[in-house]
């Protein structure tokens, strides 16, 4: 194993000399060089400690002026942006709230209209002050036209909801003569015929009993009638309106 290369002596010498120089420098000697180095090192240590302490103490006070200005600028701009966003959101909130209110009012209106029109169209049961009129036809002389006259009289007197027999009378109701009685809206009714009508009771009574009026015509034909008015007449017959096939609402131009 004589071929094994021996490490060259030079690096060893340099290495030793490096450590030796360091060791020699560390030996305490009262030389001018050591004194100067000591003083400067003390200065450095002092400065480092001071700086570290001031850095830890407060983040902002150690910043330079333009950094602070930039920081302030950024914060101000961010605050402006946030303020803008807050304003936008607030107006959006107001909008939504007023929108909800508007919707609520519109819904209430629509509900009120629906109930009104439901009564007028015969879609909803109704109750209120009104009259009950029964027409007896002992000899079968009371025909559809007489019944229709009574109905017209009721309408003229302002009856808001009318029921004949068990049929709700609407704008499209019809009365047709038949052998055993009359047909009202496809249902056969036999005497006695009972009208229920809601409206101004006095007005309706007056209109019916007027001389030469509807009831007089019944009496003239050999029939008899009984008319009672009450503060609470209940009309519970309803009729499902069919959707119009040809007529559509005319668009209303809003002002």
């Amino acid at each position: 194993m004589t071929e094994t290369p021996t490490p060259s002596p030079a690096p060893v010498r340099r290495r030793q000399s490096g450590w030796r120089r360091l060791g020699r420098a560390f030996l305490p000697r009262a030389s001018r060089a050591q004194a100067i180095v000591a003083v400067l090192c003390a200065l450095l240590g002092f400065a480092v400690v001071t700086q570290v302490r001031s850095t830890r103490q407060n983040d902002l006070s150690s910043l330079r002026q333009d950094d602070l200005v930039r920081l302030l600028d950024g914060v101000t701009r961010q605050a402006d942006l946030l303020e803008l966003e807050a304003t936008k959101l607030r107006s959006q909130q107001t909008e939504l709230e007023s929108g909800t209110d508007k919707n609520k009012v519109a819904q209430q209106n629509a509900e009120a209209r629906a109930s009104t029109q439901g009564i007028l169209a015969g879609r909803l049961p109704a109750e209120g002050p009104g009259i009950e009129l029964t027409v007896y036809s002992p000899s079968g002389t009371i025909k559809a036209s007489t019944l229709f006259n009574i109905l017209e009289e009721l309408r003229n007197a302002g009856a808001e909801a009318i029921q004949l027999g068990d049929r709700r009378i609407t704008a499209s109701s019809y009365i047709v003569d038949t052998a055993g009685g009359v047909i009202v809206d496809g249902t056969v009714l036999t005497a006695p015929y009972t009208y229920l009508a809601i409206g101004d009771t006095q007005k309706i009574s007056l209109a019916l009993e007027i001389p030469g009026g509807a009831l007089a015509a019944v009496h003239a034909l050999g029939g008899s009638t009984s008319l009672t008015s009450g503060t609470k007449v209940t009309i519970d017959a309803t009729r499902a309106p069919s959707a119009p096939q040809y007529a559509t609402p005319q668009p209303v131009n809003k002002p």
Binding site: A25, F26, L27, P28, R29, Q34, A35, V37, A38, V39, L40, C41, A42, L43, L44, G45, F46, A47, V48, V49, T50, Q51, R53, S54, S61, S62, R64
Partner: peptide, 29 residues
């Protein structure tokens, strides 16, 4: 050796005296 002692003395002095950096010197320290 003396240099290390000087460094330690400086650090200790800084810890004991707790100096505050003058505003003028703050960017330069």
């Amino acid at each position: 050796m003396i240099a290390l002692i000087g460094l330690v003395i400086g650090v200790v002095a800084g810890l004991i005296l707790e100096p505050s950096v003058p505003v003028v010197l703050q960017p330069y320290l």
